Simulated assay, not measured.
Amino acid sequence: MENLNFPGYQFRFKNRENKSLIFDIIRKKFVVYQPEEWVRQHVLHYLISDKKYPASLINVEKQIRINSLPKRVDVVVYTPQGEIEILVECKAPEVKISKDTFDQIARYNMDLRARYLMVTNGYSHYFCQMDYARSTYIFLEELPSYTPNSK
């Protein structure tokens, strides 16, 4: 397991049928350990432990429809009112984050209208806040912490 640019978290692992599995704290089951999954599990712990988002507001590998085509979003964080607060795109550590990578989540977000976007490969993290009134976004140093009354 490679160390990523996140605080140290405790993970549960097991092996089954010659496969390494990692416990997903949102789906509450063991999933196949792969580089992108390693990043996704760090993001989940970061959102819950460090940013204090309730696990009940987080969805993993959420299927969405963009222009009638099914797409999968790595992590979606909702507001208590059911609106999308954060969209997260996770890449494997060896995948360089490029403009194309960021454009992918921005395209998904055209219809979804999340308040914040995050793209990470575990080493580099990019955060932005959407400004729909001006059709732009503002890069942030980090995501805001959860506030129960945010809209």
Rank of each mutant, 00 (worst) to 15 (best):
Y9R: 08
Y126E: 04
I48S: 00
R115I: 13
F13N: 09
P93M: 06
L143A: 04
N67H: 08
K14T: 06
K51P: 12
T79P: 05
N149T: 11
Q104K: 06
P148Y: 09
N59D: 14
E89A: 02
L143V: 03
Y108A: 00
K151D: 10
Y108R: 05
A55C: 00
Y116A: 05
S56P: 06
K28R: 08
I26G: 00
K71I: 12
L112V: 06
W38M: 09
R12E: 11
E61Q: 07
Y53D: 03
N149F: 10
S124F: 09
Y33T: 01
R12Y: 14
V60F: 03
R40K: 13
M110D: 13
V31N: 02
Y116D: 03
D103K: 13
V119M: 00
Q63F: 06
R65S: 15
R134P: 05
R115C: 06
S68E: 13
E141L: 15
R107Q: 00
W38A: 07
S68F: 13
P93C: 02
D131C: 00
E142C: 03
S124M: 15
L44F: 03
N149M: 10
I58M: 08
Y108E: 04
Y146W: 10
T120Q: 01
K99P: 02
K91E: 03
P7F: 05
L44N: 04
K71F: 10
Q34W: 07
M110N: 09
D111L: 11
N109M: 02
F102W: 09
C128R: 03
I97V: 12
Y132T: 08
V31I: 14
L112F: 10
V32T: 10
K99R: 14
L4E: 02
G82P: 02
D74L: 15
K52G: 05
V119R: 02
H45I: 04
D100K: 13
G82K: 01
R115A: 11
R115P: 01
A133V: 14
S68H: 13
A133G: 11
F11E: 03
F13S: 10
M130H: 05
Q63C: 07
K151C: 10
A55G: 14
E17I: 05
N149Y: 14
E36G: 03
I84V: 12
D50A: 00
A92K: 14
K96N: 13
Q63S: 12
G122T: 13
I138E: 06
F13T: 13
G8P: 11
K29S: 14
V88C: 11
T120M: 01
